[in-house]
Design a protein around this nucleic acid. Structure first.
Length: 847
DNA sequence: CTCGACCGGAGT
DNA sequence: CTCCGGTCGAGC
């Protein structure tokens, strides 16, 4: 097909630009522009970045209004075709614009912005057909002194392209003058897309002579050029290209010597592209696959069948902590690679620890690319390029690694599939699990969702009797691979403790447990479930609580900077020493619960060594790792922390795990709070006694008979699920329905209220028209109900009031599309553009 | 998003 | 009648 037109999604995040724009493909780019190419295109009066999502022949459209593509930004399209298709699916599924979906798939390094360049009109090629005679022969306008200076400056630096930014910096406050020169045509402007980071290069050296020519060259050196001769001899000896840096350090010569040699034509100095490797200094001990246990063997065989058949197949791998899921992942990946295909491993960001990386690097060596948030933009870009260029076969990373641009994806592993961090909370609000399944279908690949506590959604899908061909197949692993026993779990009723006169935050059992570990030289992990708590500041005299002036939320105390900050908008004030309301000095920091626990511990056990892990101690890069390392080296008796101590850590000498207050997550106003609590407790408990020593877990709670706590204590996932599913079914919550959370916001409350009512009414009306609307108790498969509007749990953020409504539905109706269209119609009819509607499909946080 | 076009009100 | 600030709508 003779394609001369490219359909381009431009990088302009607006509702009315969320559609393809057509551009002519210049002949010079004809062989290079593909679907997925990143281009710079003229858009209005500026140049913007865009992505080609389709190609079409020229006959279909009129050229009149069409502009040509200005530049092609990469030799290889950053997005393979399947990802472009995936973006189309995502933008529909999650009601977001195409550009957001596309942007989510590529590293930020490739989010280029236009750079403005200034040149003199006369520098422009006079043969350029676009120029009119008028412009060519126009009398040069008379210039003022200021103008002369600017022109002279540009002339003097004529050899280098000059950026607008540079020019403005050189002539501060003369923006208007420059604009005038541009208008008068004395100066002209061009725009080019500039990437955030460049490919990194190193200088390399290669000998350009060999054999007899080399002999002759060596003979030609004068006595003074001894060093040059040495260099050439060395180069001939190694016979390959070598980095300049390496050459200099090995031979102890200077760059000048090598340069001379190059000038004589005996060597070639070039820039070679290198990959920034965040792990280049690390050596990973090579590991071999372990023999499979009976359970592992069964699971492995099932998955292998699908891999070998190169067809889609999803598995929910329910394996208790320590059952050896990771080994199964690695061996199935091995098999996938041996079939010539590639694999993606998704892990929650928080558990992407050096330990985890080490396991995969150790098994797969340089076949692995690692992507996580701690990498710099450049490092992430390079890891991404290794994938795109086919240099690696395995990508391991957090949520966004699901977009790893492999060409022949054979397997996607999602570890801890129940983790909420797989849901992106910003646009595009996708869930990596759903994207994974979609991608696997595209590629006829296998998916493994692994967890000790699967999400109810996945579990229900696997058990469901609906004949859903995409539903995962349930695989179970119930034995610990090492043969060690699950820890015994003790529930302590804290009300009872109080009745017995123990007002401490440690129950007698936990106290005794810690004491025993200290005596035996074993270690303890203390977990503080702080969800829903924050480190707010309150005056004990008048009850004043420091809050954000723009958001209805209390400010969080940060010890490091000694200030109070807002979680949502970043507002910060110095921490007050007296109450700003009443002047009282009794203003108290309800400090990070962990600090209080730490103080208490040292009081009760003088000399105890506590390693505290929370936001305050882990902000610095690498501190997280350091603290864990210290604990592993037994430089601490107790590891105390929040969520971050619960994940995937494995310490041989930990025999006691204490949960200070299990209820905090239970009291959360969220239909998933019981599920979250169960998962958390199970996970924390899994930290104890993973090796030879038997483990013990103490859970402190005020609600000892809550089913999530009871079943967690008996390691009984199935009973928990049975009970939780009953609740969900009765209330029509997921997995028996699906949700869409719509949040409307505006600065003016009365206006917002009216619009929110309006929106829900419109939505209801349209749903009724379609015959979808109805009560969830109805015995129909396809039904949709609308709840609200109500004020959001955080009613104001960044000085904008927020109202929300919840769409609950089941069946095969396209509710996201319905919501999107109603929202769009409403926004189109509105004059006020500051009115916002945010749509969250399958929300995880109901806030 | 970002720019120029366009409109209406206040000021010369 | 001009100048400024705000709103509108196009962008291929």
């Amino acid at each position: 097909m003779n394609c001369k037109i490219a359909r381009v999604i431009v990088d302009v995040p607006s509702r009315d630009t969320d559609r393809p724009f057509d551009y002519i493909i210049p002949d010079t780019m004809k062989d290079w522009i593909e679907i997925g190419s990143r281009v710079g295109v003229p858009f209005g009066h500026r140049t913007v970045q865009g992505f080609v999502i389709d190609l079409r022949p020229d006959s279909e459209l009129n050229f009149a209004r069409m502009k040509p593509i200005q530049e092609l930004l990469d030799l290889m399209p950053p997005l393979p075709l399947d990802l472009v298709k995936l973006a189309e699916w995502m933008s529909h599924r999650y009601a977001c614009s195409m550009i957001f979906a596309l942007q989510a798939m590529i590293p930020t390094a490739l989010k280029g912005k236009a750079e403005r360049y200034i040149q003199l009109q006369e520098d422009i090629d006079p043969t350029d057909e676009d120029q009119t005679d008028e412009a060519l022969y126009a009398v040069p306008p008379l210039l003022t002194g200021e103008e002369e200076q600017i022109v002279a400056y540009i002339k003097a630096n004529g050899s280098v392209p000059m950026t607008m930014a540079h020019l403005s910096a050189q002539f501060p406050g003369q923006g208007e003058t420059i604009k005038g020169l541009l208008r008068a045509g004395v100066l002209t402007e061009t725009q080019m897309i500039k990437d955030k980071v460049r490919k990194k290069t190193v200088k390399t050296v290669t000998a350009t002579v060999s054999g007899e020519a080399a002999e002759a060259a060596l003979a030609s050196f004068s006595a003074q050029a001894r060093r040059q001769k040495e260099v050439l001899e060395f180069l001939l000896e190694v016979g390959v290209t070598i980095s300049l840096q390496e050459l200099l350090t090995t031979l102890g010569v200077t760059a000048g010597t090598v340069k001379k040699l190059a000038e004589k034509g005996f060597a070639l100095i070039e820039d070679a592209e290198v990959f920034r490797d965040p792990y280049q200094d690390r050596r990973f001990k090579r590991t071999e696959p372990l023999p499979r246990t009976l359970e592992q063997e069964l699971v492995y065989n099932k998955i292998s069948e699908v891999l070998d058949s190169r067809s889609y197949g999803a598995f929910l791998l329910h394996g208790i902590t320590g059952s050896g899921k990771t080994e199964v992942y690695m061996q199935t990946i091995e098999r996938c690679i041996s079939l010539g295909r590639q694999a993606i491993v998704l892990v929650p960001e928080i558990s992407l620890t050096p330990q985890m990386v080490e396991r995969f690097k150790g098994r797969f060596g340089n076949k692995v690319a690692v992507m996580h948030s701690r990498l710099s933009t450049g490092e992430r870009y390079d890891e991404w390029r290794k994938i795109r260029e086919g240099r690696v076969q395995v990508a391991i990373g957090a949520r966004s690694a699901i977009f790893a641009p492999f060409s022949d994806l054979g397997l996607i592993v999602m570890d801890e599939e129940h983790e909420t961090s797989y849901k992106q909370e910003e646009t595009p609000k996708y869930h990596a699990r759903d994207v994974a399944i979609r991608r696997a279908k595209q590629h006829h690949a296998a998916v493994i969702l692994g967890s000790a506590t699967p999400s109810l959604e996945s579990y229900h899908a696997a058990r469901s009797l609906d004949n859903d061909q995409y539903a995962p197949i349930l695989l179970e692993m119930n034995a610990r691979a090492s043969g060690s026993r699950l820890p015994s779990i003790q529930i302590v009723d804290m009300r009872e403790e109080l009745r017995e006169g123990n007002r401490s935050m440690f129950s007698r059992q936990l106290h005794a447990g810690i004491e025993a570990r200290l005596e035996r030289g074993e270690q303890s992990v203390l977990f503080l479930n702080r969800r829903g708590f924050s480190t707010f500041v309150m005056c004990r005299t008048c009850g004043y609580v420091a809050g954000c002036p723009d958001c209805d939320i209390s400010l969080t105390y940060h010890q490091k900077s000694n200030n109070l900050r807002c979680h949502y908008c970043g507002y910060a004030v110095p921490a007050p020493s007296v109450c700003p309301e009443c002047g009282s000095e009794h203003i108290r920091y309800f400090g990070t619960g962990t600090q209080r626990v730490e103080t208490e511990l040292s009081k009760l056990f003088p000399g105890i060594r506590v390693i505290r892990m929370d936001v305050d101690t882990t902000t610095e890069k690498g501190s997280h790792e350091k603290l864990l390392q210290a604990f592993r080296e037994k430089k601490g008796d107790v590891l105390l922390g929040t969520q971050m101590v619960a994940k995937g850590l494995d310490f041989p000498d930990v025999t006691l795990v204490g949960v200070i207050a299990a209820d905090t997550s239970l009291n959360f106003p969220d239909f998933r709070s019981a599920e979250k609590t169960f998962q958390l407790l199970t996970q924390v408990a899994g930290r104890a006694g993973r090796h030879q020593l038997p483990g013990e877990v103490v859970i402190q709670t005020y609600i000892p008979d809550h089913y999530s706590i009871v079943h967690a204590s008996s390691h009984d996932y199935n009973s928990f699920v049975r009970e939780e599913l009953l609740h969900r079914k009765a209330l029509h919550y997921p997995p028996y329905s699906r949700l869409i959370l719509v949040t409307l916001s505006h600065e003016k409350l009365p206006l917002l209220l009216r619009m929110a009512e309006n929106f829900t009414a419109n939505l209801r009306g349209k749903a009724q028209q379609l015959g979808w609307f109805g009560n969830m108790d109805r015995f129909t498969r396809d039904v949709l109900d609308i709840l609200g509007p109500v004020a959001s749990p955080i009613p104001r953020i960044k000085n904008r009031y927020r109202f929300q409504c919840m769409v609950k539905y089941r069946g095969s109706l396209d509710a996201a599309e319905l919501v999107r269209s109603v929202a769009e119609t409403m926004l189109n009819d509105m004059r006020d553009s500051s009115f916002q509607i945010s749509i969250d499909v399958d929300p995880q946080m109901l806030m």
